[in-house]
Lab assay of single mutants.
Amino acid sequence: ENVVSAPMPGKVLRVLVRVGDRVRVGQGLLVLEAMKMENEIPSPRDGVVKRILVKEGEIDDTGQPLIELG
């Protein structure tokens, strides 16, 4: 899985990584606010952040691509 998608609709509060960062499975990639709760979205695998497809403050839909890993 190279693309991390939104598991729920919500607002992107914080992006915790930058392009080029090495990430490990379970590491937080970004924080979504949904139903007044903050949810940290973890990396599904080890890899390198290739692209960040959303910006802080954006509203996303379920299934929307958020981050691409390489």
Score class of each variant (00 low, 15 high):
G26Q: 04
I67Q: 01
V54Q: 04
G10N: 03
L16Y: 03
P9Q: 10
I41T: 02
R24A: 11
L69A: 00
S5R: 15
P42M: 11
G26V: 04
R45M: 14
L13I: 13
V49T: 02
E58C: 10
A34H: 15
E38G: 05
S43E: 01
V25I: 12
V31D: 01
L53E: 03
D21I: 09
K11S: 05
P7K: 08
L16G: 02
V25D: 05
V19M: 06
V15S: 02
K55M: 12
G10L: 01
G20W: 01
P44T: 07
V48N: 04
E68W: 10
G28M: 11
M37N: 09
R24L: 11
P42V: 14
G20V: 03
K11M: 09
A34R: 07
N2S: 13
L29E: 01
L69E: 01
S5A: 12
G26A: 05
P44I: 05
L69C: 04
L29R: 00
L53C: 11
I67E: 01
E38H: 09
E68I: 15
I52V: 10
T62C: 11
S5M: 14
V19E: 11
G57M: 07
E1G: 12
R18Y: 04
K11Q: 06
K50G: 05
R45W: 13
I41Y: 03
G57D: 06
R18C: 12
Q27D: 10
R14S: 06
K55A: 12
V23W: 02
P42Q: 13
E56K: 08
V17H: 00
G63S: 09
P65R: 06
S5V: 15
V23T: 02
K55C: 12
V25C: 12
P42Y: 11
G20L: 05
S43H: 00
I67C: 05
E68N: 04
N39P: 03
G47R: 01
N2Q: 11
R14G: 07
V25S: 11
I41Q: 03
M37H: 10
L53N: 05
L69T: 01
I41P: 02
V54I: 11
G63F: 07
P44F: 05
K11G: 03
V25E: 12
G20S: 04
V23Y: 00
E40I: 15
K55Q: 12
N39H: 15
G26W: 04
V12D: 03
L13V: 12
A34Q: 10
V31E: 01
L30R: 00
D46E: 10
L30S: 00
E33V: 10
I41M: 04
S5T: 15
L13T: 10
M35S: 11
V19F: 04
V48M: 09
P42F: 12
K55D: 09
M8T: 09
N39T: 14
V12L: 07
G47C: 05
R18A: 13
S5N: 11
G57T: 05
V3P: 05
G57A: 06
L32I: 14
P9A: 13
I52K: 01
V23I: 08
E38K: 08
V23P: 00
D61E: 14
K50V: 14
D21H: 05
G10R: 03
P9S: 09
V49I: 12
M35Q: 13
P9N: 08
L66E: 01
L66Q: 02
Q27R: 03
K50W: 07
L16P: 02
P7S: 08
E40Y: 12
I59L: 11
K50F: 07
Q64V: 12
V15C: 08
G47H: 03
G10E: 02
T62N: 07
N2M: 14
I59A: 08
P7G: 09
R24N: 10
I67L: 10
R14F: 01
M8P: 04
S5G: 09
V19P: 09
Q27Y: 01
T62E: 13
M35L: 12
L29W: 01
L53R: 04
G10C: 09
L29N: 00
E56V: 14
Q27G: 04
R24D: 07
G47L: 04
V4T: 03
V23R: 00
G63C: 10
G70T: 14
R14E: 09
E56G: 09
R45E: 05
K11P: 00
L16H: 04
Q27W: 02
